[in-house]
Nucleic acid binder design. Structure first.
Lengths: 371, 371
DNA sequence: ACTAGGAACCGTAACGGTTCAGAACATGTT
DNA sequence: AACATGTTCTGAACCGTTACGGTTCCTAGT
């Protein structure tokens, strides 16, 4: 299993050609177009290459000339330790990886720390395109990506005109969920949501903060909820919305605690993610409340843990999101990238999945006949 | 949020320099060494760049010149859909990603399908090094990686002389586990193991297959078990070993079924992974057997699900594996890569974690005083 | 007035390939 | 014999950048 011995300097295509007394073109052809030279010569080239320890054409030099890096970049402005734990993010990554694998293209995780303002890593990434997954509107890394002259697909957020996007119709999905709760009779609701901006605000989020949220998805979900509930006479200004910066079960639980301590009257807690909902479920049960008899809890995403917990939630096909984004980026028919007219928006189907965590409020009767 | 308008052809550093009437060096310096030119000129360069839609130095050309790609490749010869589900693999990936993130280096997932013999993707990957995670001895992609003139670190398997390796001491770890069972009194044991070669063999694996396994880790674990049990008088040829190609809970369950149908006498099922063990646990309980009263089950890896199930297992720090591999690869002090004398082998600590799935066999007494 | 030293900028030579339009020669066709 | 058709190989241009080793100019010190 001996590796080739490296003498002095690495052999190059040129030195190999010189050694063989043939042109560089011929050596290149030996590797890339076997039909362009006689089998005997090809064998001689490859044998000599082995003997000289020439490892084959340098990928970077090749990329420079062919203008193909053979990889796409994934921008994910989140702590990686988090990204690899969140089932939704993982599903996206998996789908993307599968699509790229099919095309024989690599996926490069571009290092981009949340707070980091240095976008050099984005500029240095030798990739043929970018997939951006769920970043805030004002993310500096996203800006750097858009500067690059390569195609870009954004998953979920932000929604930008002129840039391809793959994601669900959050507004429609949330409306469906809202009306499920409205029809059950809920009017006193509370909301737990994920971070709304890059600054930390673990606590109640006033209406202005909701509407100015830098995370498009959260903003849409919240404003849609507001519209739906206001349509049936609920004053949204009175609806408590608790925000959390980190997205974990524990934070979901603590958010639920904060919510219920201040608003014991709520009959339903609407969470903008399953993780938060599952955390809330833990807290609510810890308090001795029965779900859904005493309180309704809903999630969003449809991760497998939610299914196991029979959570009422909105399912979205995360793996498909990643796969579609990959396919869109790699689609050879639309290499006319950068053409804003040609923008593609893929909207994925969502599905309201009614589990066992939603039911009419205890005082439902009085609502069923109107407020 | 308008992207720069692309006229005719992309601007280059040279065209920008020409436009400005300065040398290319100066433009390059404007981006890479701000201290090498006056702030005024630098501003003029950057402004003109923006105006011309020059996106900054091309990463690939830069990589060619600097001989740094700014990314490392991860070779993982396994279906990605699996890799992203297996907690152990995920932990490694996370650790690796963290180490690389710290260094501002990207991680590129190199597409390499299990059955695929075409190793072009390995040759085409523009990376500064490779991390190879748990592949068989005879993996063609691994061979292609070793051909490349970049440093390589192998995690777990195979163990090759001259190539850096990060992994646990499987033999020592398995010996400890074996003696735990031996001391409890188990002599009638059965084993469930992961695939032993690239060909599929879902069923019993004869001793020869065990010893010739192409997966170093599995081979070591099995031969170590054999040695330990033979040391106390067990004839290993009579010990049933069931192999599974796929590594899932369901396969663990079916393997356990196959094992127990043919060998109802076994008092302990030793599994070479937690996933298999958890699957076996499901099957055993389905049969109405109590664990550990009726039968002992052990795993290997120490994933969080195992902890939750209070499985007796060998814990190994998967995240650390990934992180160490990354650090080793990126270690600037040993850029003398390819020097076989300089080989590094990092052996990680493991820990026997005795849970509630191991206990003396029902007929233990007769063994305690010898066979 | 002379010079040392630093700041600002530049010219050249790689970096290691791929590509395309032909050249050279052999073979088949009419 | 003239011409079309392949096959095999080559020369030169090009991909976009940075490393290296300068040169030029200005200022301060003596």
């Amino acid at each position: 299993m001996g590796r080739p011995i490296r003498t002095r300097r690495q052999a190059t295509l040129a030195s190999l050609a010189a050694e063989l007394g043939v042109s560089r073109t011929t050596v290149s052809n030996a590797y890339n177009r076997p039909d362009q030279l006689s089998p005997e010569l090809r064998k001689r080239v490859l044998d000599t290459a082995r003997q000289l320890g020439y490892p084959g054409p340098d990928p970077v030099a090749r990329s420079l000339r062919t203008r193909k890096a053979g990889a796409i970049g994934l921008l994910l402005t989140e702590n990686l330790s988090y990204a690899f734990r969140d089932p939704a993010a993982l599903g996206v990554l998996e789908g993307l990886a599968l699509a790229c694998e099919d095309a024989g293209v690599g996926v490069q995780l571009v290092p981009a720390r949340p707070g980091e303002e240095d976008v050099a890593t984005v500029h240095r990434a030798g990739v043929d395109g970018f997939v951006v997954y769920s970043v805030p509107d004002d993310d500096p890394h996203l800006n750097a990506v858009l500067q690059r002259p390569v195609p870009t697909v954004i998953i979920d957020q932000p929604v930008l005109s002129g840039v391809d996007r793959v994601g669900p119709d959050d507004a429609a999905a949330m409306t469906t969920l809202a009306y499920h709760l409205i029809e059950l009779g809920h009017r006193e609701v509370g909301v737990l949501c994920m971070r709304l901006a890059r600054d930390r605000n673990d606590g109640f989020a006033a209406r202005e903060r909701q509407e100015k949220a830098h995370y498009h998805v959260q903003r849409t979900r919240l404003t849609t909820l507001a519209e739906s509930f206001e349509a049936v006479g609920v004053d949204w200004s009175t609806v408590p919305v608790v925000e959390r910066f980190e997205h974990t079960l524990d934070e979901g639980a603590s958010a639920a605690r904060q919510m219920l301590d201040a608003n014991p009257q709520v009959t339903a807690i609407i969470c903008t993610s399953d993780i938060l909902a599952l955390g809330a479920l833990n807290e609510v049960r810890r308090r001795g409340l029965r779900v859904p008899a005493d309180i309704t809890i809903t999630g969003f995403d449809g991760i497998s843990d939610a299914e196991r917990a029979e959570l009422t939630t909105v399912y979205q096909p995360v793996r498909e999101k990643g796969r579609s984004a990959g396919n869109l980026l790699l689609d050879p028919t639309r290499r006319g990238q950068g053409n804003p007219v040609n923008q593609q928006v893929i909207t994925l189907e969502t599905e309201l999945r009614i589990g066992k965590t939603s039911a009419p409020p205890r005082t439902a009767e009085q609502h069923w006949f109107g407020p």
